[in-house]
Write a protein that binds this DNA or RNA. Structure first.
Lengths: 329, 329
DNA sequence: ATGAAAGCGCTAACAC
DNA sequence: GTGTTAGCGCTTTCAT
């Protein structure tokens, strides 16, 4: 492997000072035009690429953006990561993705590593709250929280999803269809979003004059497995005739359990998912769901990355509306 | 924002030489034990994290692994990326994901950026071949190719999928079911894997004594849209009674077209997909498919990242078998 | 218009 | 056991 081409090696090759090379490559005016072109040509020839580490060490910033997600197999996160990656591609940014698996230890570790590389910003879907003294030290990090919100040191912006109306309307819709035993599976109080989704569900019940049946409401740490198992409980106990899901992982988990119960049961239980994976429309005649504005989310996140116009637009807290999508016969 | 905590600032804070701090933090023996502990404690207190850029500049390596994928919305790539990200998490590596969208210009750009940050290795699913003079300069990069193979400078390892038997068997299975008009949609010759999949399809036809009908075979640059549109052509022209897909994007695209044709058509056309998204089992009574060994792929890729045992095991070319999964009534 | 020096954070190689 | 020096690649500042 040939030694790395540096600004100095080019200078030596050309018998000039490395400063002239530096200036030429950065289009500084004070370089003779012919010389500049010659230098640039030679650099291209040699396959020169600037050394990001050297630039970073000078305090020039890193062009590195961190992205912390619970996982990337869930289509919601995958699509979001895809959108972010494309946006970063377009802005010549590096996107470092760390998966937290909703584990605060992994989250802490990821943040620490991103401090090491001096990421210019970190976009993160926070894991469910940990005890206060376990707060990850994100000092020096420009943190932007997505979808979920938690008290995190260094947070400069937050983009949340306002799903209150969508969840509320989902319950009302089910009630109008004649359902009286409407279940809910969502995240617990460790997450403010979990709390709010449950509140929205309850608001829906109130609107329709239904009273809450504790046996039909399940909350916990949001995961695929949790959605699966809660769905099982829901069927075994006082059986619900309808279900509203309050989380993307939960929704997929519950749906997988539903599908395994056979095609018939899907018609007996009105299912309203959360997030809108591409295949929901094809399942059991179409799965109704609460759709999240993925592209808008990515767009807002990118906007918050830019230094300008951040505080300008106010507090740095944005909310994007979810949308109820009804499907089926 | 407080200034960054460095080895020097700690030294100053403690009134000692920065070298002692350096030694203490890296557990060098030549430091008085009490002093070492004191230094470590203070460093933790101050929230010290080593500066990756400085380490990189000394030539100590970067712990950065690049991953180039066409996209990450396709469940196959998403699951693979997920597996790689978890593996990197476990090994304290940074995973930088670049999406190429199967565009060689984006691929070239991504490789250049990874050279800038001196990635220790790059795992890539190469885009379809470009003209030779457009070869991306990956010099100095430790490239590992995945799934697809192309002549790329700096390649130190390749992990491919051997799907010959699976595709061949798929055709034989369809023939045994009585199908005589079996279609195929796959990648074109720009990709060696495309060529081989078509060859496997033809081998299947030969085995069963069927002759190839050019109108039923479509190849091109593999993408969701391509799969969709070719599926349309297949239905309009001499209509096939069965279809074998030769690519993950193509499979999803073709399937989406199939689903839109209504639930009935799925039973008229025997569909064999490629890749095994979680929902295939739930569609139209179960979609048969060629399943790819995602976890094994990630495992092999990780193994190739480790410097040891690379050349030891031979040429650095591994092949993993795909598997035909039959579903449906 | 060009060059020389300094310094970003870190550690190997020398002193002592 | 501890401290000093030098140098990785780059650009800002100060000569020339």
């Amino acid at each position: 492997m040939t030694k790395r081409v540096t600004i100095k090696s080019i200078a030596q090759d050309l018998g000039i000072s490395h400063m002239t090379v530096s200036r030429a490559l950065s289009d500084h005016p004070n370089v003779h035009k012919d010389k500049r072109e010659a230098i640039k040509a030679r650099a291209r020839e040699l396959g020169y690429v600037p050394n990001a580490a050297a630039k970073a060490m000078r305090g020039d910033g890193t062009k590195i953006v961190g992205l912390l997600l619970p996982n990337i197999t869930n289509e919601f996160y995958a699509r979001f990561a895809n959108a972010m990656a494309l946006a970063c591609e377009a802005n010549s940014l590096h996107l470092i993705i760390h998966l937290t698996n909703d584990d605060s230890a992994l989250e802490r570790q990821a943040l620490e590593r991103l401090r090491e590389v001096q990421a210019m910003a970190v976009l993160m879907v926070p894991t469910p709250a940990t005890s206060p003294h376990e707060q990850p030290s994100a000092s020096g990090l420009n943190v932007i929280q997505l979808v979920r919100q938690r008290a995190i040191d260094g947070t400069s912006g937050t983009v949340l999803i306002d799903d209150h109306k969508a969840i509320h309307d989902a319950v009302v819709h089910l009630a109008q269809q004649g359902h009286r035993a409407i279940g809910f599976i969502g995240a617990n109080n460790n997450l403010s979003s979990g709390k709010q989704r449950l509140a929205a569900f309850r608001a829906g019940l109130t609107t329709t004059g239904l009273s809450e049946d504790a046996a039909l409401v399940h909350t916990g740490s949001p995961s695929f497995e949790m959605g699966r198992s809660c769905f099982g409980k829901l069927l075994k106990g006082k059986s619900a005739t309808a279900l509203v899901c309050g989380g993307v992982e939960i929704s997929n988990g519950a749906l997988s359990a539903l599908m395994e119960h056979g095609p018939g049961s899907a018609k007996q239980l009105a299912f309203i998912g959360y997030g809108d994976p591409s295949y929901y429309r094809w399942l059991a005649g179409g799965i109704s769901t609460i759709r999240l504005p993925i592209d808008a989310l990515a767009q807002e996140a990118m906007a918050l990355l830019q230094p300008n116009g951040d505080a300008a637009k106010g507090s740095g807290l944005r909310k994007l509306n979810a949308e109820l999508v009804l499907r089926g016969p």
